[in-house]
Amino acid sequence: MNKQETNSNNWQARTKKNTINLGMWTFAWVVTTAIAAFAPKFIWDFNTLLTVTAVVINVLVGFGMIFANKKHLHGLDEMQQKIQSGAMALSLGVGLVLGCSYELLEDIKLISFEPEISHLVIVMCITYMIGIIKGGAKYR
């Protein structure tokens, strides 16, 4: 095996490890989010201490997910970083613009319901996926 193949194998192994690590942190964050959202009502009957603890744990696991994502991104090659960066910029921009406009609709009484953050999260996730797909197609 030559040096280039060894470096390629090391990069692939590191990328796989970083991807799995990010997946585990993301899964843990989703689980802690579900616990913080649903356990107060269905498990511990709105116990304030347990609820605050669940939210704090969720935030800490969320920061772990952020750091795992950063490590994952730094381990990607330049093209993959460019695709990810473009998709994240698109998602952030769409989320910011639509999120502010969505809240404004309620403030000026053009919608009768209170905007939910989950709607914004869904829009940002869809936008991110579109950005990844378009970025991947652009660099093929």
Score class of each variant (00 low, 15 high):
67 F>M: 11
72 H>G: 06
103 E>Q: 06
1 M>P: 14
30 V>N: 00
11 W>A: 14
15 T>W: 15
118 S>Y: 13
53 T>M: 11
7 N>I: 13
28 A>S: 13
20 I>W: 07
30 V>W: 00
63 F>P: 06
37 A>W: 07
51 T>L: 04
93 G>N: 09
75 G>P: 02
128 Y>F: 10
37 A>G: 07
58 N>M: 03
16 K>S: 14
136 G>V: 02
108 I>C: 03
62 G>K: 14
58 N>T: 03
52 V>F: 08
138 K>A: 07
111 I>L: 04
89 A>K: 10
28 A>E: 05
15 T>P: 04
127 T>W: 14
92 L>S: 06
103 E>S: 07
127 T>F: 05
100 C>H: 05
103 E>L: 12
9 N>L: 12
70 K>Y: 12
125 C>L: 04
53 T>L: 03
96 L>T: 12
30 V>C: 09
65 M>P: 00
62 G>I: 01
136 G>T: 07
54 A>D: 02
36 A>H: 01
115 P>V: 06
118 S>E: 13
80 Q>L: 11
61 V>M: 06
12 Q>D: 15
114 E>I: 09
65 M>H: 07
106 E>R: 00
92 L>G: 02
130 I>G: 02
102 Y>G: 02
121 V>N: 00
115 P>I: 04
92 L>R: 01
6 T>E: 02
56 V>E: 05
121 V>K: 00
28 A>P: 09
20 I>P: 07
46 F>L: 15
54 A>P: 01
124 M>L: 01
26 T>C: 13
86 G>P: 15
17 K>R: 07
44 W>C: 13
4 Q>M: 15
1 M>S: 06
118 S>N: 12
89 A>F: 13
92 L>K: 02
72 H>I: 04
120 L>G: 01
65 M>E: 08
87 A>P: 08
103 E>D: 04
49 L>Q: 11
115 P>C: 09
126 I>R: 12
19 T>V: 13
99 G>K: 04
56 V>H: 09
84 Q>D: 08
25 W>Y: 11
110 L>N: 10
3 K>M: 12
132 I>E: 12
25 W>K: 03
125 C>S: 04
54 A>Y: 03
54 A>E: 02
34 A>T: 07
129 M>F: 12
111 I>A: 10
22 L>Q: 15
78 E>I: 14
85 S>G: 12
5 E>H: 12
74 H>N: 13
106 E>V: 00
95 G>C: 05
10 N>A: 07
15 T>C: 14
39 A>V: 00
48 T>V: 03
50 L>R: 02
47 N>M: 05
19 T>P: 02
68 A>D: 09
123 V>R: 08
125 C>V: 03
112 S>E: 15
118 S>H: 09
116 E>F: 11
56 V>L: 12
32 T>F: 08
85 S>Q: 09
128 Y>D: 11
104 L>R: 03
48 T>G: 01
83 I>W: 08
